[in-house]
Design a protein around this nucleic acid. Sequence first.
DNA 1: GTGAAAGCGCTAACAA
DNA 2: TTGTTAGCGCTTTCAC
Lengths: 275, 275
Amino acid sequence: MSRPTIAGVAREAGVSVASVSRVLNGLPATDEMIERVQRAVDELGYVPDARARSLNGMARGYADGLVISPLRVDEDLIKSIRECEVPVVVAGSVPAKAGVDTVRANSPKGMLLAVEHLVSRGRRRIAFLNGPADTVPGEARAKGFADALRAHDLQPAAIAEAADFTFAAGRATAPTLLGKQRIDAVIGANDLLAVGLMHELAAAGLQVPGDVAVVGMDDSELAEQCFPPLTSVNLGSAERGRRAAELLLARIEDNSRAPRRIVVQPSLSVRKSTP
Amino acid sequence: MSRPTIAGVAREAGVSVASVSRVLNGLPATDEMIERVQRAVDELGYVPDARARSLNGMARGYADGLVISPLRVDEDLIKSIRECEVPVVVAGSVPAKAGVDTVRANSPKGMLLAVEHLVSRGRRRIAFLNGPADTVPGEARAKGFADALRAHDLQPAAIAEAADFTFAAGRATAPTLLGKQRIDAVIGANDLLAVGLMHELAAAGLQVPGDVAVVGMDDSELAEQCFPPLTSVNLGSAERGRRAAELLLARIEDNSRAPRRIVVQPSLSVRKSTP
DNA sequence: GTGAAAGCGCTAACAA
DNA sequence: TTGTTAGCGCTTTCAC
């Protein structure tokens, strides 16, 4: 009643299990052998057991390699990566001396794009709605915002820190920003925060982009679907994923190659939330 | 250099592999045995190999049971379910005679809730923006819409069929609906279609809900996040998932119990897109 | 309560 | 080219 095994196929075909295994793995065999095995396999509806198959040969475990995107990078992590049985590619920031393939975004540059855009549209009183500043993205974006404003000789109009990177937190924290001195633009640390803020702007009777321009970050589907559609910084997440996969494949192919460090450049998707 | 095995642990602890296996699986053993094995495990940083572990004992494969949500149900499917080595619960509609545990939504009832709500708000010229009608949800919702209107002695104001259940398709198809005779309400077959439509309404200078009320289906996060927030039929997807899991667990526990057929009732999340 | 040994389904030497 | 056989890491009788 249970699934047929390779032994059953061998019996049915009147050959050895080794021959069945060979045919199944495309190793050299006579046409007649292939024919007989194939017939038995079809007959029995045989499907190889992936567990048993992966049990042999040290290299072939569950995964042949790993792409990880750590929230926190410390010595322990780097040590683990070095000791890992399979190649590891890091999507995120890791010191060059770790000697590991990495792909990362350039969020300071992204912030700069957002600020430049707002400035070019005549906005000067720019606020920032961040998520928790003690997270990797929170910290990077806070710094990026400060640097970008400085590059334009501007002072932050206001800065608020939401409890997390969610729509609800964005709504809850937005009033902090609006209560302060007049602002004419807000950058959200991600699209969810930005959209949460837009709801509060509407509730306060403020027009987007007329009274306040809004820029998000991530260029998610929500940015396209919300109303008005949200101008958003595209940090290249899709491309980062693709590049990480490429690096990993290349390293699995040849583990001796020198580590590469790729930085994916951001772009700005301009929509109706900015003038 | 490779991972320690149970044999290594046994050697380190000075006991047999069988004893290590027993301790690891919480089978009876003396305190001293447990102590020694535990120490060796910690020492070596041993982690059991799940592949090898699952190789024994027929019942324990990759999965102990399945919840499936088929797009199409035919004889072949039912046959496969019957022949499956592990219990199967179907999230969706299957004939009672199949004798399988099922959980399903009540989308006709959901349509009724939407129509009732719109009627109670004084709307009479109700249109329907469907996805492809040759899909299970598309067909069910089309029928549900027709029945719900009939129950209220109304004629459909207009019906359109988008190429798929996406935001883009919603936008693309919306003009078909708006070009027709005046409508004062639209029901979208899901939230994405409804939100796509809302964008076109805005583009056409129509107010929501002032000129046209809009109701979506799925009660997704988007319904809450879009603007104005979208009234949406909640078909209980979360609860259906929970109930399906419960049924499966119960059946794994006792495979002799009679099949159960659960129907999760819908509710309406009323938001600003309806008056 | 513990250890020795026989598998689980498959692959990979090694011989023939 | 093929068959025989020894494992892969673990669980599970079955004696002790």
